[in-house]
């Protein structure tokens, strides 16, 4: 997760930042904050996008930055968050929070909406429409058509999967490895499908 909300820059060389991350064995999965162009390029690069955090957490984030500089710690604790938070705002990285954080969402996820289960699996009983985004630390199960974007394993869990009843996704991503609609074998489109990371690539198969 790249938090860019504290950077004033309207434009970011996001692609280069991601390349640098990958060189250092960090897998970028999503961006938080930033301007509309930043959001657009995040989407174009197959990354998720989160609204900037506000209020108390934002202050905590700022102070963690200072602490980290002083103690020269790894910066990854800056993301720790109340694991009960069900909102799509932030993403927890605490591995123990991964228990029992399955989220069930009933209804259509509509264009412009984002539904996430930061710490566990996400189950959607309904459709994920074009322009909508669903994210999960674990796997994503959609009992309906997937027409929007689905990002599973957003903390780097390579064994996460995506399952849906009707594949028409704009974007599929497991732990930052992504495919866009145009990269998907057209024979798989419209049918039930499962998506996993196998043999170092994203594999999409019919769900039987």
């Amino acid at each position: 997760m790249l938090s860019v909300e504290k950077l004033g820059a309207p434009n970011l060389a996001l692609e280069r930042i991601c390349a640098v991350c990958r060189e250092h064995k960090l897998l970028p999965v999503a961006v938080r904050g930033g301007t509309d162009p930043v959001r657009q390029s995040a989407w174009a690069l197959g990354l998720g996008w989160f609204a900037p955090v506000e209020g108390e957490r934002a202050r905590r984030l700022a102070s963690v930055e200072v602490d980290a500089a002083v103690e020269s710690q790894a910066a990854d604790d800056s993301e720790a968050e109340d694991p009960t938070t069900k909102q799509s705002q932030g993403v927890a990285q605490d591995p123990v929070a991964g228990q029992d954080a399955t989220r069930l969402y009933r209804g259509t996820v509509r264009s412009g909406q984002q539904v996430s289960a930061a710490d566990g699996d996400l189950i959607v009983i309904g459709a994920v429409n074009a322009g909508a985004e669903v994210l999960a630390g674990g796997s994503i199960h959609i009992y309906g058509p997937l027409r929007g974007r689905a990002l599973a394993g957003i903390h780097g869990n390579l064994s996460a999967g995506i399952y849906c009843r009707e594949l028409k996704a704009e974007l599929l991503s497991v732990a930052g490895n992504y495919k866009r609609l145009e990269d998907v074998d057209s024979r798989l489109l419209g049918g039930p499908a499962q998506v996993h990371y196998t043999n170092e690539q994203l594999e999409i198969k019919p769900l039987v």
Binding site: T108, R110, S111, G112, Q113, N129, A130, G131
Partner: peptide, 13 residues
Amino acid sequence: VRDSDRILGLLAS
């Protein structure tokens, strides 16, 4: 249809 979908999201929030 896409815009209507967005409006439905707003009506619900």
